[in-house]
Design a protein around this nucleic acid. Sequence first.
DNA 1: GAAAAAGATTGACTTAAGTCAACGAATTCA
DNA 2: TGAATTCGTTGACTTAAGTCAATCTTTTTC
Lengths: 189, 189
Amino acid sequence: MYAILKSFLKSKTSIDETTLNEICSHFKQIKTKKNEILLHFDQVADRYYFVNKGCIRLFTITRDGNEISRFFAFEGSFGTALPSFIDQKPAEEYLQTIENSELLSISRTDFYHLVATIPQFAKIYTEILELGFIVAQKRIYGFQGYDALYKVKWTIQNQPQLLLRVSNKMTASYLGISPSTLSRIKSKL
Amino acid sequence: MYAILKSFLKSKTSIDETTLNEICSHFKQIKTKKNEILLHFDQVADRYYFVNKGCIRLFTITRDGNEISRFFAFEGSFGTALPSFIDQKPAEEYLQTIENSELLSISRTDFYHLVATIPQFAKIYTEILELGFIVAQKRIYGFQGYDALYKVKWTIQNQPQLLLRVSNKMTASYLGISPSTLSRIKSKL
DNA sequence: GAAAAAGATTGACTTAAGTCAACGAATTCA
DNA sequence: TGAATTCGTTGACTTAAGTCAATCTTTTTC
């Protein structure tokens, strides 16, 4: 149950089994259905999720009622509405599992308690933030000034899972293009 | 010389004067000219800058020779090519002061030494990352799916300094629109 | 397993924004 | 301070991508 999480933690820093178990003991396993909403637009995020199986999607809905996908977390990564989790303001986005999923979930209180008391966990959190920052940057800069074809090619190179596991509609809204455009591009490549 | 930096640090965490001085002692002041390059595309970032006066711009150049602005740091904020600073890989971007500037500069070694030895500084670094992450997210999501007019309005609301202090050309490339389009939009509002 | 719903594809048309070029305004620096 | 260069604005034209709708396909659900 904690195997993937433990190997994730070990990959980030050197850490003994006792500490690993202490960390894992605060994570509860939950199973969710495809399309289940974990967090609503107006809610404040108070749990951090680690994906054991399945996929979490972060998305929002624009004024005109269109879904915009923001982020996908697959097996072996953490996901939550981080700005809300950090600042305890309404998320202004939804968290959803887009496949039947098995998640490990930790409360915000426990999470920050671990950050405060276990230096290795603090280090891991820093690395999660650093990585999140770098990924966000790459996403902005990888796309900036390029056309739809380039964005799709970039995604195939950098996040191949997306095209394989996520619907056209969700992928298109993630890339900031219309489903028709994505469909046309895929047919030419 | 360290007044702005100290008040920045104090705003982030409670910290005594001795520790503040210890932190500040690792920052050296440098003065730079308008358009001076602090870091080249192929270099590895090994300094973190705090802007006392002026403005740092992060930008890159595309295959077809166009500058794309990525980030602007004004007075009272930190700026560097963070992915390179973190991972010690070539920056693939330039750092430049776009005004005559006064910067406080710390080496990567000293920076991570402070992170490792002064818990308050580690906390501040975490908050810088959290904030950077949130800002990056807002930038992606504030723009996603919206047209040029909306992007300009968003920028006026969220980063009013940009329109006032940065040239049209740089602002346009930051927003991912052409200078002509930015010019046309500004004339209509 | 059939009916219904949701998603994907494709074509015809529209539109927002880009390009290119010309000109005027503003900076730069010798 | 004046020549030179860069920057901003505007107009005419082009184009990439969006919209809308029809059709086809896949996935749900009862």
